[in-house]
């Protein structure tokens, strides 16, 4: 464990908590892509099956359980409890265009052709594109509440910090997980445009982040 990875995990947890609390307290999921949240729940489900097969550390186990609980709770809030505020019109990204290529690639490019390993690979590839429905929804509505922007900021920072973690681990222990690194770079690149908007608009205190 190193500071980059720990702060990455903390950012990830903060992002997930920000989103959950935003929906819970405002009793509305307006502006939130339910599709992205379903994809994230799928990412955690396919990645954390090793909860039942291998024990790494208390931290690892606790964080996986917390991520799974919050992810499914958020999906539950969006599609059940506050479903009347779910803007399915704007959340129109065709997720099959993500799922099919990601599933295909995870069968072609993986470390081992075993069920757990292919599911892990699927989750890595899927995570790199899971935010696209949310980013697409924001470009479609043309704006995002600043709380949603903060959520995206922490979510983008988390994987960027993981890139630093992989640099550090490569430098200190020769660790190199090519699938995770390449996907992490792609994932972070998708946030670059948002980061620019965030630091030029949201931080100007304009309340909402309105896209050009």
């Amino acid at each position: 464990m190193n500071i980059f990875r720990l702060s990455g995990d903390v950012c990830h947890l903060i992002a997930i908590i920000i989103l959950f609390l935003k929906i819970w307290r405002s009793k509305s999921c307006a502006g939130i892509s339910g599709k992205s949240q379903v994809l994230f729940a799928l990412v955690f489900t396919t990645r954390y099956l090793d909860l039942f097969t291998s024990y790494i550390s208390a931290y690892n186990t606790v964080m996986k359980v917390v991520y799974l609980l919050l992810a499914y709770s958020t999906v539950g809030l969006i599609f059940f409890r506050f479903r009347n505020s779910y803007d399915s019109e704007s959340d129109s990204f065709r997720v099959e265009f993500l799922l099919v290529p990601v599933a295909g690639l995870s069968f072609l490019e993986n470390y081992a052709f075993t069920p757990l390993e292919i599911l892990w690979t699927f989750s890595i590839y899927l995570e790199s594109v899971a935010i696209l429905p949310q980013l697409f929804m924001i470009t479609k509505t043309g704006e995002a509440e600043s709380i949603t922007a903060h959520y995206l900021l922490f979510l983008g920072l988390y994987r960027a910090l993981y890139l630093a973690n992989w640099l550090w681990r490569f430098h200190t222990e020769g660790f190199y997980d090519q699938i995770a690194v390449v996907s992490g770079v792609v994932q972070t690149i998708f946030y670059c445009d948002f980061f620019y908007l965030y630091f030029t608009r949201v931080l100007r205190g304009s309340g909402k982040m309105s896209l050009p």
């Binding site: 995990d9 291998s54 964080m63 470390y111 390993e117 973690n165 660790f175 997980d177 995770a180």
Partner: peptide, 10 residues
């Protein structure tokens, strides 16, 4: 040598 299969990262 790091065993790539036991993914120890979240």
């Amino acid at each position: 040598e790091y065993n790539i299969y036991n993914h120890d990262e979240l």
